[in-house]
């Protein structure tokens, strides 16, 4: 409840500040429209925005799912076949040094103007945080559990399955939270670079035509969608991995 009040105060405070700036500096609507006109555009153009939101949402969610799966797979491979990590990890780090924005046009050429290129960009953006968080968790299993398993003469892959993976899931969860924040950014970046659909495309178009109110309306749609997505993912993670707090306390 406290959070709700704090959120509301923050939200309305920023709106008032925004309106204040527009009135005080007498800003014309093609520089900065007031909150009311943005809201009006949002309402009037709801159909257009909703239509453009659908591809963005699909790209984000597919990118999030595929990127997370790939990230998990990479982490599991590296943790289970330790010598392999010496080869994979540098490649991952190098791949992160390449700015996604810079290669986005190339990816559009390779994967086309459709959704595929946006999904690929999203995957590239969120793959690494998932891998590194999960890999970290897999490497730092509490020694006591491993000792216990050793005295029980457990096989390596069973220890991996029954102890190291569940113990690493809370780490994976924090990686997934970061990924959830990145995912819509990936999709929108992809749409900026080259697309015929999507909220990123709509923003770019509106910007070019000086329809700043429409641009803001699209922007707010993205923000709301991102927050909603984060909220939902967070709830799912908490339900699926209820021992997160316990592990955090130990380490």
């Amino acid at each position: 409840m406290k959070l709700f009040w704090r959120g509301s105060i923050l939200f309305f405070g920023l709106i008032i500040l925004w309106q204040g700036m527009v009135s005080f500096f007498q800003l014309p609507p093609y520089i900065l429209p007031g909150p009311w006109s943005v809201f009006k555009t949002w309402y009037l153009q709801a159909n257009l925005i909703a239509m453009e939101a659908i591809p963005t949402i699909i790209e984000t969610i597919l990118g999030l799912i595929l990127g997370s799966l790939l990230g998990c797979l990479a982490a599991l491979t590296m943790a289970f076949f330790r010598p392999l990590s010496l080869w994979i990890l540098p490649i991952l780090v190098i791949s992160q040094a390449i700015p996604t924005f810079a290669i986005a046009p190339l990816l559009v050429i390779w994967f086309g103007y459709g959704m595929a290129s946006k999904i690929v960009i999203t995957i590239i953006m969120l793959f690494f945080p998932v891998t590194s968080a999960f890999y970290d968790g897999l490497r730092h299993t509490e020694q006591g559990w491993l000792d216990l398993a050793k005295t029980m003469q457990a096989k390596k892959w069973r220890v991996f399955w029954h102890i190291r993976i569940p113990a690493a899931l809370p780490f994976l969860a924090s990686g997934l939270r970061v990924a959830t924040v990145f995912a819509p950014i990936g999709a929108v970046v992809g749409e900026w670079v080259g697309a015929s659909k999507g909220l990123g495309f709509l923003m770019l178009n509106a910007n070019a035509r000086m329809q700043i109110d429409l641009m803001f309306a699209a922007l707010f749609t993205i923000v709301i969608f991102s927050l909603l997505l984060y909220f939902i993912v967070n709830i799912i993670l908490r339900l699926l991995i209820p021992w997160q707090k316990e592990i955090a306390k130990n380490s």
């Binding site: 559990w145 216990l148 069973r158 991995i241």
Partner: peptide, 24 residues
């Protein structure tokens, strides 16, 4: 060991059975 080494993702019953789980 000095600590109970119970695994937080398993119930008391499953923790008690962990040696069997590890044998599959």
């Amino acid at each position: 060991a000095q600590t109970d080494l119970l695994m937080p993702w398993l119930t008391a019953l499953d923790n008690a059975l962990v040696s069997f789980r590890l044998k599959g």
